[in-house]
């Protein structure tokens, strides 16, 4: 059998390898992947964003309120129920990012905030727009706005400052 194939050769191709250096040899290695990512029990939150609402969680046993949802309570382990968050809150803390992970570099600078809401014990991470970075302050009243064309990402909701003539909410930590 071997004789039949004695002249066999792998076909040559014109594809190559990107080389950065030869001492030591450093090459480019490409890697990418598409995940089939299920939001699973967090699904109602992301569907809620597409309907213009933020859904939080309330513990059925100890009544703890989570502004970022979770289906079981971190304090006591009991199941939670879904409860809509108010559309207004206050800035608990903030920063403006001038750099970021590669996926977000083209969006810099952007301003991150943690938002606190009346009636909820924990906070929610989002971005604030429509205000000079320097003017963002802890305690600033903010309100949620939603993308019309949902991407089913947490960035479907973002915050803008409330106007002076709008009644500011009373939140737990930063009034």
């Amino acid at each position: 059998m071997a004789d039949k194939h004695k002249d066999f050769k792998l076909p040559e191709t014109d594809s190559g390898t990107i080389v950065f250096n030869t001492d030591p040899l450093i090459i480019k290695y490409h890697y990418e992947i598409d995940y089939i990512h299920s939001y699973a029990e967090d699904t109602p939150f992301f569907v809620g964003l597409s309907q213009g609402k933020m859904m939080g969680s309330r513990c059925t046993k100890c009544n703890y309120g989570f502004a970022t949802p979770r289906s079981h309570c971190m304090e006591c382990g009991a199941p939670t129920t879904w409860e809509q968050l108010p559309n207004q809150g206050r800035v608990h803390t903030y920063t403006t990012c001038y750099f970021g992970g590669e996926a977000f570099l083209n969006e810099t600078p952007f301003t991150l905030i943690l938002v606190e809401f009346a009636g909820f014990d924990t906070l929610f991470l989002s971005r604030i727009v429509g205000v000079d970075f320097e003017k963002v302050k802890i305690g600033m009243p903010v309100k949620a706005q939603y993308l019309r064309n949902s991407k089913f990402k947490p960035t479907d909701v973002y915050f803008v400052p409330m106007q002076d003539d709008e009644p500011a909410p009373h939140t737990p930590y930063s009034n």
Partner: peptide
């Protein structure tokens, strides 16, 4: 990766906050 990373995942940003 559901709630934090997509908003602008960046540890220096988290520590800044």
């Amino acid at each position: 990766v559901n709630f934090d990373f997509p908003v602008g995942g960046f540890y220096s940003g988290y520590y800044a906050m």
